[in-house]
Amino acid sequence: MATSIKINVNSKIFPTKDKEDQTYAAIKALNLNISKGEFCSVIGPSGCGKTTLLNLIAGLDKDLKGEILFDGGKKLDDIRIAYMFQNSRLLPWLNVLENVEVVLSRDQKLKHRAKEILSVMGLEKFLKFYPNQLSGGMQRRVALARSYSSQPELFLLDEPFISLDEKMANKLREMLINLWTNEPTTIVFVTHDLREAIYLSDRIIFLSKAPSKVILDKKVNIRRPRKLEDKKIETLREEILKTTKDIFDGEEKNA
């Protein structure tokens, strides 16, 4: 059900808007292999091209030098993908249930997949509500339900819990982990919150400033199920920050 990804981006260049002859390199020589069912977080300074990377993987942006392969050779068209954006991107004219069902195949609809996931997320009483009637946190939950109910082989998340209060964000993190534990899939999770990344992931990739490349590839060996207040999370966080002080500025450590 899950897919592996082989990312070899030689360069991703944007034209600069005002000056036509100038360009801006967002990514350069970024090579990364993510294995089947892995929960992989990506951390980097703001503007380093994290979203650009996700858009390249998702095929929203096809203009790159290099290639991204799935399952050792499959094309993007052959795999099921889900993408959770910073804002929920629900269709305001569809109710909660319709918003989830709209991305499902007929087979998934017949199995009442949408209702099942929505009840797992505690939304069974809100099926007929429109997004405008829901709080920001609930909208995010619907978006998470939509993503997961499509049974993705690859699930991309772009700072999905940003601008939520900590309590709501923690609840959603827990929900995500539960879903992933029950139905494993490959996850690429972009964040700038190191604690969040450690709590969630098997592995954390640190990106440099633009043009971005991998500057640190860190495995998280804390046994699951993890607890948010687990001391090991804090210990690992401090260890990472100590050994690579400028990691958040995207400076490469001097070994």
Partner: peptide
């Protein structure tokens, strides 16, 4: 366009 990207991601049919 953001909403259309959602359709693209989930490979929704053209008519839909």
């Amino acid at each position: 366009r953001n909403l259309l990207q959602v359709a693209l991601i989930y490979k929704v049919s053209k008519t839909k």
